[in-house]
């Protein structure tokens, strides 16, 4: 069975020859091909090359188009800053929706309009063409609170939940529509899985999550699934207080960061949820030894049980020793679920 067949079978609960392997690499993949990170973010050919080389040499079961959180916001007209060796970033002091009234006139940009989203869609298409028969192609969209924060400014959005709930709902409606359009074009271009990154969700408590974030995430997830793609939810940080809600979104894959114990997630989400993660990317994967990595991933496997995909808690850091990442990969290559 090839990588693509393996992941799809595992998600459907059919038997597989070994554990699927889907760690997130961005800056690491870029460093593998000696490219500038600026180009990885802005030129889909560089991104595709980095992903294909890295997935090939480490034996990943998938490739992924994530590079930075600013694709959608940039196309909406938000001010972003480009760096040579760092992800593209939003300029929060000059947030697009610093004035809330602008939301009423803000138009959803055409994902195929030649902007940064279009570049991401081209990356999906190129990956599909080059490795799509063999590997899973994963596209990427920002989740409602992450994208809401990108447009409004994260510090301000945090207080909007209390100051102006109606605005937050309107903002999330806009964002869900935007992300669904972006996702649709990625699915059309060949994405099997859409990753939904909703990092800022780990900053809010269970009440704000349930009242504002969950309903918007649910619409986004359901919408992507209607397009025929699978969803991988990734929320960076400590999500212990919202695990139950995350489980009820019905995502095919829930990808957990190292601060959210897999055993707890298993309890909260039931026996059937496929869990991915969650080695500490810094203290274990980057700073540890290959033996420590093997020990940690074995523990993850034990905590998650058989509905498990191997990966780190978040992005594999750029300067991770290759032998450590190889130890992570070897575990997947050598173990059955």
């Amino acid at each position: 069975m090839n990588s693509r067949e393996r992941v799809l079978a595992h998600l459907e609960g059919r038997p597989v020859d070994r554990l699927p392997l889907m760690p997130i690499t961005m800056m690491f993949a870029c460093a593998q091909i000696g490219a500038r990170y600026r180009d990885y973010c802005c030129d889909y050919r560089v991104l595709a090359e980095g992903q294909i080389q890295t997935a090939g040499s480490f034996g990943f079961d998938y490739v992924n188009t994530m590079s930075d959180p600013a694709r959608e916001a940039a196309d909406c007209g938000a001010r972003v800053e480009y760096f040579d060796s760092q992800p593209v970033a939003l300029v929060e002091d000059d947030a697009l929706l610093a004035d809330k009234k602008r939301l009423a006139t803000l138009k959803i940009p055409d994902p195929l309009g030649g902007g940064r989203m279009h570049n991401g869609i081209k990356a999906v298409a190129l990956l599909k063409e080059r490795v799509g028969r063999e590997k899973i192609v994963e596209g990427w969209v920002e989740g409602p609170i992450a994208e809401g924060a990108d447009l409004r400014g994260i510090n301000t959005l945090m207080t909007d939940f209390f100051d102006d709930p109606a605005f937050v709902r309107d903002l999330f409606d806009f964002v869900v529509e935007l992300e669904l359009r972006f996702a649709r074009e990625q699915v059309r271009a060949g994405a099997d899985v859409i990753g939904v990154g909703d990092a800022a969700a780990s900053l809010v408590g269970p009440q704000v999550y349930a009242e504002f974030v969950w309903p918007a995430e649910k619409r986004l997830v359901a919408g992507i699934q209607e397009m025929g793609a699978k969803v991988r939810l990734h929320i960076c940080g400590n999500t212990r207080r919202i695990l139950n809600g995350m489980g009820r979104l019905g995502c095919e894959i829930v990808d957990l960061d190292s601060l959210a114990p897999l055993a707890e997630a298993r309890r909260e989400m039931g026996p059937n949820q496929v869990l991915l993660g969650n080695l500490n990317p810094v203290t274990v994967l980057r700073n540890g030894t290959p033996e420590q990595v093997t020990g940690a991933v074995a523990q993850c496997h034990q905590d998650a049980g058989s509905r498990f995909i191997v990966g780190a808690g978040c992005e594999v850091p750029r300067d991770t020793p290759p032998e450590n990442l190889r130890a992570l990969c070897a575990y997947a290559h050598q173990h059955k679920p």
Binding site: N155, M158, T159, F161, F162, L203, V204, G205, V208, R240, R241
Partner: peptide, 14 residues
């Protein structure tokens, strides 16, 4: 104690 989260911290500081 995970009774408050970042939004609550920010409004208290404000």
């Amino acid at each position: 104690a995970s009774e408050y989260f970042v939004p609550e911290l920010l409004i208290a500081a404000r």
